[in-house]
Amino acid sequence: MTQTTRTLARALLDVDALGAEGIEEVLEEAGQMRGEDGRPVRSRELAGQIVANLFYEASTRTRVSFEIAARNLGAEVVNVQPSGSSITKGESLVDTVRTLESLGADAIVIRHSEAGAPYLVSRHFDGAVVNAGDGLHAHPTQALLDLLTMRDRFGELRGLRVAIVGDVSHSRVARSTTIGLVLLGAHVRLCGPRTLLPPDGWLEYLPRSERGGGAVQTTSLAEALEGAQVVMALRMQRERQTGGLLPGLREFVRDYGLDREKLSRLAPGAVVMHPGPVNEGVELAPELIVAKDSLIGRQVANGVFVRMAVLRMLLGGERG
């Protein structure tokens, strides 16, 4: 049995465990979920299965995307939104997961503010587990939808030049998408102010790419953007400013906020992406969001296909 099928037979915790072939398998599958008309192919394939959305962090977008994906496949969806107080009252994550298992949940889709929480869930839950974002660590379905969006536009990702700009340090999207891109052979430049970049050493712990992919970090936006084919802006959390990591948002916008002028360094035919929701006028100038080179809307649509593919591979008939 290959690494890929073994991993997706149980859980999707991050893209690293999928490897390049595993990622491509999911992307192929996601393509199958997209009909000729560009809309999801609905089925009853997961009829009778229960998908529990366990979201410890509010996230309407991701939760709804998972919910629609599951319903498109005929699964039942329950939304569990533990209030912050029930966590502090001592109902532990493990308790909650055991309860969901007893209640008959077949899959848990978990969003949590603590890195690694989905790993804990997968150790205590017999069904399938999907990481819908854990702390600063990973957001694998976001990475997969980013990869699908880039592949739709550029075909092969090998050699693709991608700049990821902004608060890299606090971005699980940056981590997972970088890992996916590197595995598929792309060249990633991570860019932001020094206080919002992880220590350079972390690049040593990225998976080895058998396709010549790699990642570098720079504080120079010009360097990051020069000749890039994709630029992905990251959401800037306002509390970073109060955390003393930045002198102020204005300075961030001046140096790293993307606008037409700064984007003139990109390669011809380059595209703009963002995991959403966008702080307009902070990481992206408003006119870029709906521009014809923006793929932000495509990313959202692809999210449903990718999540359908993941749920189908985890819960579908060929499982086991």
Binding site: A115, G116, D134, G135, L136, H137, A138, S169, R172, R175, P198, P199, G201, W202, L203, E204, Y205, L206
Partner: peptide, 12 residues
């Protein structure tokens, strides 16, 4: 420990 591994893991 703050370093490359914590950055990879997203742990403070």
């Amino acid at each position: 420990h703050e370093g490359a591994v914590s950055a990879r893991l997203g742990v403070r």
